[in-house]
Design a protein around this nucleic acid. Structure first.
Length: 153
DNA sequence: GCCAACGTTGGC
DNA sequence: GCCAACGTTGGC
């Protein structure tokens, strides 16, 4: 089993939206970065656990946990002309972009803020999210990082 | 709202 | 293949 961190803007879709979603599950659509896509398409397995990160908000940080409930399949939004995530170069015969399904597991009583993560830089220096300028929306997390971060929550 | 960092695009 | 221009991300 693998661990991941996935970013989302809570104004668009946050952990509360995941909890409230039908079957507490959503298709993680709109990823339009090849490295992030490769993680989702090639490496994410059913049952993998996800740190749900809120970006572009008052207190950026990790707000809860989700799990991968369905492995990669084509991102329908890429085929829909006029959709914000429409991409004409993705075709049904040869999809460029993929989604996975993410299911709610729990919301932290107290989020683990970016500030807190930075304060533990010595233990978390490998975390891609903490690297200067990193914008990847899907990143792998080591078992050690997972255990430490969930112990902070 | 600002702006640094980064990925992508497209002319050459 | 280079690289300047541009768009996006995301912390602050």
């Amino acid at each position: 089993m693998n661990y991941w961190l996935m970013k989302s803007e809570p104004d668009v879709f946050g952990i509360a939206d995941l909890r409230a979603a039908p079957k507490k599950t959503t298709a993680w659509d709109g990823v339009r970065n090849y490295q992030a896509r490769n993680f989702m398409r090639d490496d994410m397995k059913k049952g993998d656990l996800v740190l749900f990160y809120h970006s572009n908000c008052e207190v950026p940080g990790i707000y809860g946990i989700g799990k991968i409930s369905r492995e990669a399949y084509p991102d329908e939004t890429a085929f829909q002309r006029g959709h914000v995530h429409y991409d004409p170069k993705s075709r049904r015969e040869a999809p460029t972009w993929y989604v996975v399904d993410v299911t709610f597991v729990r919301e932290f009583a107290q989020p683990v803020s970016l500030e807190t993560l930075k304060a533990h830089h010595a233990r978390l220096s490998e975390m891609l999210i903490l690297r200067r300028g990193n914008r990847l929306s899907v990143t792998p997390i080591s078992t050690r990082e997972w255990d430490f971060i969930t112990s902070l929550a």
